[in-house]
Amino acid sequence: MLTLEKNARIVFAGDSITDAGRDRTAEPGGWGFGTGYVNQIHCLLSAIYPDYELVTINSGVSGDDIVMMAERWQRDVLDLEPDYVSVLIGVNDVWRHFDQPFWKPKRHGIDVYEQVYEDLIERTLPHVKGMIIVGPFMYEANQQEPMRAMVSRFAECARRLAERHGLPYVDVQSAIDRYLTRQHTCIVSQDRVHPYERGAVLITREWLRAVGFDWEREAIDD
């Protein structure tokens, strides 16, 4: 059974995987959801649960790490008065350690990630009905590859935080790992981080599972 209450407002926060080219001029919850998993979730919830009249808002910002996201949390999340907040953040916290070796931007480790994430959860929970924590991931099958290994450590941190606060945790990496036993990463992502639309489906399916989405639902107003 769907764990989201009827007429609820769901705000999705995160980086470019959440942003996915959303229209920043759009009325929040009205249109412009981007081409990624947020749009897919919006379409499926709207089509299969029309009686719930759920409002979907995409607040993802391309390039964000957890520190950058936290700086705008009040404006981008809390000011939108959400009932539920879904968070997918962490891959940029890792990526900056690998993709700019000849320039030294501000970098932080998993300790900062955990502290800031904990603060955001504690700051948000008194104002919402629930939060959904989505673990960061890569479309990379080799678990010993250095960036993938670090992403996995950040994902385990996100899982611990979810468990600590009794929140649903969406394990996208496990779904990706299963997929990559049969197909190459280039089918779902160009750079192992940003998904094509079919790569976003893996995120969407796991997120919907976490909130009790019924793929076979036929009755309305049940």
Rank of each mutant, 00 (worst) to 15 (best):
D64P: 00
D65F: 09
I66G: 01
I66A: 07
I66E: 00
I66K: 05
V67N: 05
M68F: 08
M69N: 07
A70V: 03
W73M: 01
Q74W: 08
Q74P: 06
V77I: 09
L78A: 04
L78I: 09
L80P: 10
L80F: 04
E81C: 13
E81Q: 14
E81I: 13
P82N: 14
P82H: 11
D83G: 14
D83H: 15
Y84R: 04
Y84W: 15
Y84H: 12
V85Y: 02
V85D: 05
V85L: 04
V85I: 02
S86K: 12
L88G: 08
L88H: 05
I89N: 04
G90E: 03
V91T: 10
N92A: 10
N92W: 09
D93G: 03
D93L: 03
V94D: 09
V94I: 14
V94R: 11
R96T: 11
R96Y: 12
F98H: 15
F98K: 15
F98A: 12
D99T: 12
D99Y: 13
P101C: 15
W103V: 13
W103A: 12
K106I: 12
V112G: 02
Y113R: 03
E114T: 05
E114Y: 08
Y117H: 02
Y117V: 12
D119Y: 05
D119K: 00
D119V: 04
L120K: 03
L120C: 00
I121M: 01
E122Q: 13
R123S: 01
R123C: 04
R123E: 03
R123N: 07
K129Q: 15
K129R: 15
K129N: 15
M131R: 06
I132W: 06
I133F: 01
V134L: 02
G135P: 00
G135D: 08
F137H: 00
F137Y: 12
M138S: 03
Y139M: 08
N142F: 07
P146L: 15
M147A: 15
R148W: 06
R148T: 10
R148M: 13
A149G: 14
A149I: 10
S152F: 13
F154I: 02
E156V: 12
C157W: 01
R159D: 13
R159H: 12
L161G: 01
A162H: 06
A162M: 08
A162L: 07
E163A: 08
E163F: 08
R164I: 01
R164W: 04
R164H: 08
R164Q: 13
G166H: 15
G166F: 15
P168Y: 14
P168S: 11
P168K: 15
Y169P: 09
V170F: 02
D171M: 06
V172N: 09
V172F: 09
Q173E: 13
S174R: 11
S174Q: 13
A175G: 05
A175D: 06
I176Y: 11
D177I: 09
R178V: 11
R178W: 12
Y179H: 04
Q183L: 03
Q183K: 00
H184R: 13
H184K: 13
T185R: 04
C186Y: 09
I187D: 06
S189A: 04
Q190S: 05
D191C: 01
D191W: 09
D191K: 06
H194M: 03
P195R: 00
E197G: 02
R198C: 02
R198V: 05
G199H: 01
G199F: 02
A200L: 07
A200D: 03
T204C: 09
T204W: 10
R205V: 10
R205S: 08
E206W: 00
W207V: 00
W207I: 05
L208M: 06
R209T: 04
